[in-house]
Design a protein around this nucleic acid. Structure first.
Lengths: 220, 220
DNA sequence: CGCACTTTTGAACGCTATCAATGCGTGTGG
DNA sequence: CCACACGCATTGATAGCGTTCAAAAGTGCG
């Protein structure tokens, strides 16, 4: 997939470091971005100043779709890690798609997956209590890595508790408590030094943990 | 926009009534749907049985984007009202797009708007307390009607309190209480008979109400 | 008219937010 | 090298918002 993009467009590459802004809300739309490596968060900005983390992006994910309709990006995309971003000029992409239908399928598939993913986030936030939401967040992260063939036994949360809490719709204290409980139950194991690295003995444990909340009573 | 679609594809039309399923999660993807009239809800279904209302659709909105990537729809779309749905075979749409770039722009614009809209829902759910969330929901509904040139002074909520609550991540009782409070403050006025019709004297009142919660302390 | 469904409202409980204090890890400067 | 400061994380105590449980009233339909 990245191969295909590369062959068709030879996109410009950009190295980003943690904290770098890949694209900025409000600036005029001209390009989409594809993460070739690294991790990024997508932050939705409201006129009144609210900031909401609305997505996490990994290798092969696209950024900037929200800009197509309005002509300017609706969200910031911030690198959480060192990585490489490919800049895909939208006009060039459309031109290339005209010649290669497979490219268009790629683009539509990515947008479709984005829509489906956002809805899954919505479901998680709306139906799960805090502990399960954190567990589901870790499961999601682990599975995202697994799908990309990356190590999944040891994951490094490249976000503060506050950022995670913002994403999940809870406070940083609640995130911290949830992680402590998950660790106490052996579903996750913190690295010796620093509580940013998490080992997940088996993802199925997290899945079961999430399900255990649904048996008794779903939050709607 | 609907004009353009009609000219290019002469789509099949389907009349739907409240409760009719426009498209079904799990069935194989072959077409997108455009609402020419009526209102619909999009319901995400999880393997474990959870159901989450993840969107509301009005005239001109598209349904079924989530099916493109996976080859089958991820969500049910249910009509909340009598309306007309246009069936847009995906293959035919792509073929038409090849000839008319404007059509492709239309499609991408619709998908982009969907992505941005889902993120706004996410922000609403994650940052607003219950009363404000309900107010924001009404504002959103009123603005959706306004953008389409429909009456906005009197809106009919075509969902039960339970459905609204599911969408907003709260219980039906909380929705009911929030609506009662909004009515008590004069921000909305129930119709004499039935509490399903709501008059909104001025949408700005709802906006101000939402903002009033952010001044003191945002939930993150 | 009676029945099923929806809505409203009350009371009590519980989960999560809030406030506050402490601990940990890193980097800086004396 | 140590002391210190700073940011981030953890944990406890308390309060409050929203859920849960329950009852009653309204609405629509056969």
């Amino acid at each position: 997939m990245l191969q295909q993009l590369n062959d068709a467009l030879q996109p410009q590459r950009r190295i980003v470091h943690a904290g770098d802004r890949i694209c900025q809300a409000g600036t005029s739309f001209g390009a989409l971005y594809v993460l070739n490596s690294g991790v990024a968060k997508v932050v939705n900005l409201a006129a009144d100043g609210r900031e909401q983390v609305v997505g996490l992006k990994f290798r092969g994910d696209w950024l900037g779709f929200d800009g197509i309709a309005q002509g300017c990006y609706a969200c910031d995309a911030i690198a959480l890690d060192t990585g490489e971003v490919w800049v895909i000029r939208y006009e060039a992409l459309l031109a290339a798609c005209a010649a290669r239908p497979a490219l268009l399928a790629l683009l539509h598939g990515a947008m479709s997956r984005e829509i489906a993913g956002d809805r899954d986030s919505m479901m998680s936030v709306c139906t799960l209590p805090a502990d399960a939401r954190v567990a589901d967040f870790l499961r999601h992260w682990a599975e995202a890595l697994a799908q990309r063939g990356l190590r999944t036994d040891q994951i490094t949360l490249r976000m503060t508790r506050a950022e995670i809490g913002n994403f999940l719709g809870m406070t940083l204290e609640t995130v911290s408590r949830a992680l402590s409980r998950l660790a106490r139950e052996g579903l996750i194991i913190f690295a010796e030094k620093g509580r940013r690295d998490v080992r997940i003995p088996e993802v199925t444990g997290l899945v079961a943990f999430v399900q255990s909340f649904l048996a008794t009573g779903t939050v709607q």
